[in-house]
Computed example of a mutant assay.
Amino acid sequence: MSINTRSARITPAGGNVFADLGFEPAEAQALQAQSQRIISDKIAIKEKLMGELALWIDTENLRQADAAQILGVTRPRVSDVINKKTPKFTIDALVDMLARTGKRVTFSIA
């Protein structure tokens, strides 16, 4: 049995996938804007958590290898945190790393 893996339509980078899915133009634009806001909010949360981890590493005067051992990750992962490579981490993973430093994460909803 053969599976067809050809794509009939590809949305270009910066295109609106909602329009490609057949939503009316105004609704597609609103959905895309909402999606971008959600993505931006998640990136901001990740950057804040990563900043706290980087500050902890700096304050404790740790080498990346030592921080990695405490955080339960590899040294390259620590480098990714310091360089704020947000796509490589979930919020949950960053919260777990902060817990290993003894920090507690709290949040508020507005």
Rank of each mutant, 00 (worst) to 15 (best):
N4K: 09
S7R: 12
S7T: 12
A8Y: 11
R9C: 10
I10R: 14
T11C: 13
P12K: 13
G15K: 07
G15D: 01
G15M: 08
N16Q: 00
A19T: 05
A19R: 15
G22W: 03
F23Y: 15
E24I: 03
E24T: 08
A26V: 04
E27H: 05
A28C: 09
L31D: 00
L31T: 02
L31G: 03
Q32R: 05
Q34G: 00
Q36F: 01
I38F: 10
I39C: 05
I39R: 15
K42V: 04
K42D: 04
K42T: 08
I45T: 15
K48C: 08
K48F: 10
G51K: 11
E52T: 09
W56P: 11
D58S: 15
D58P: 07
E60P: 02
L62G: 04
L62I: 08
A65L: 07
A65I: 08
A65Y: 05
Q69V: 01
I70H: 04
L71H: 09
G72E: 03
V73R: 14
T74Q: 05
R75V: 01
R77W: 01
R77K: 10
D80V: 05
V81L: 06
N83P: 01
K85Y: 04
T86G: 00
P87D: 09
K88A: 11
K88T: 10
F89K: 14
T90Q: 12
I91A: 00
L94D: 08
L94Q: 10
V95H: 09
M97Y: 14
A99M: 09
A99S: 12
R100P: 12
K103N: 04
